[in-house]
Design a protein around this nucleic acid. Structure first.
Lengths: 232, 232
DNA sequence: ACCTGAACACCGTTCAAGT
DNA sequence: ACCTGAACACCGTTCAAGT
């Protein structure tokens, strides 16, 4: 195959390769053919680039998947002011659902990413923080907000299990944010995490009691169903 | 490498290869190294068998994954009699949760399998049918049972989205059960499906209104949270 | 008729050789 | 210093050649 020109007027550089272009192309390919059909080689081909060129913008395929999830979280509508917590949460969750319907491969990828990484990306943290902020502004005390986030879990982003597992002794991740920056950027998340940690200061693990949270959510659901049943 | 013997007293045949042995080994390998580390070649190696030998017992890797999910569903405790619907559902869901904790790779696989297949395996159908049966026996009318199954969705088996998508015009699957067998083996499921179809006989699609179901579950959850908040 | 080794068309990623 | 082709160690699956 011949190049279009060998003169110094080179072929149009087709826009420089950027992280955003790589991630957007990856998302588009996954939308078309599912995540199984997604490969580094195919993304490169779609961008008219040699496979190795991608590695300048993403460390490896796992990090590419993290980046893709960030793109999706960015598609969720930002919270609206002045409408009350319930309307704000409801709109946000329905926006997240619309995003998931556009990208049916997303829940499975998010599920595996949440299990594989010790902690979520900053984009994900910002989403969770903003969601917590809505509950807090709506008059929910910290502990009920904590339960509420667990209850909403599977509806917030298509997760079925807990949002993020504990680091489980793997030690701090290399790309963890310093605590001060965490507190500054994600104040609601920090407040909640601090309250939870203080709550169980005498317990070994500083994380949530996942079993309790699961049963709390389950009982809330069963209560609701029972009420409907009794009401006819 | 030499064979242990060339005499007619052959090496112990290590138990004949069966579908169950293939699936159990696959589940064990996934438990150890995650689903990414699972390959046909590795399963074969663990069984001391040539890779192609597996294809006598599973059609391909996707069908292997379906079989693995069936193994997991089989680990959920059967329903208990004489305890009331609420206790029965609660125990069952908590048993499903324990299964998921034993196999952290399961939700992502179930998620992808539910999206890839047009309909669930008979084992999965039996699980869902039995769950519906508990609600019905507990006095829930069919339509409320329908909503309840959607509400419980993500807790029933770690699904986040709808349990199974509509066939979406792909036509009947080759391995679909004939309607009479469906009705005989899964009576509750059939009753519910019939009621739903009748409900929307004037609508084109015969499936559920997923959007309605999602909002129903969301509002049930929000009602419960609001009640707790108001109660202090 | 049954089984299986080699082969095919892929993968993600490394690395040394080019510019 | 930067970029990249070939190569490495894998995949799932086909298929023809063996018994």
């Amino acid at each position: 195959m011949e190049t279009t020109s060998q003169s110094d007027a080179a072929a149009p550089p087709r826009a420089p390769l950027t992280r955003k272009r790589v991630l957007d192309t990856a998302v588009a390919l996954a939308d078309e053919g599912g995540v199984d059909a997604l490969s580094m080689r195919r993304i490169a081909q779609a961008l008219g680039v040699v496979p190795m060129a991608l590695y300048k913008h993403v460390a490896n395929k796992n990090e590419l998947l993290d980046g893709m999830v960030d793109v999706l979280v960015g598609e969720i509508d930002p919270p609206v002011d002045g409408v009350g917590w319930r309307t704000a949460i409801r709109r946000r969750v329905l926006s997240a659902r619309r995003m998931l319907l556009r990208h049916p491969w997303a829940p499975a990828v998010i599920e595996t990413r949440a299990k594989a990484r010790a902690h979520p990306t900053p984009v994900m943290l910002a989403y969770l923080d903003s969601m917590i902020g809505i509950f807090r502004a709506g008059g929910f005390p910290v502990d009920l907000t904590h339960h509420a986030m667990h209850v909403m879990g599977s509806r917030l982003l298509g997760f079925s299990q807990e949002l993020f597992e504990e680091g489980s002794g793997r030690g701090p991740e290399p790309d963890a944010l310093p605590p001060e920056e965490m507190a500054a950027r994600f104040p609601h998340l920090t407040e909640l995490a601090t309250a939870v940690a203080h709550d169980r200061e005498s317990v070994v693990g500083s994380g949530c009691d996942d079993q309790f949270e699961f049963e709390f959510a389950l009982d809330l659901t069963l209560d609701g169903l029972d009420r409907l049943r009794a009401g006819g």
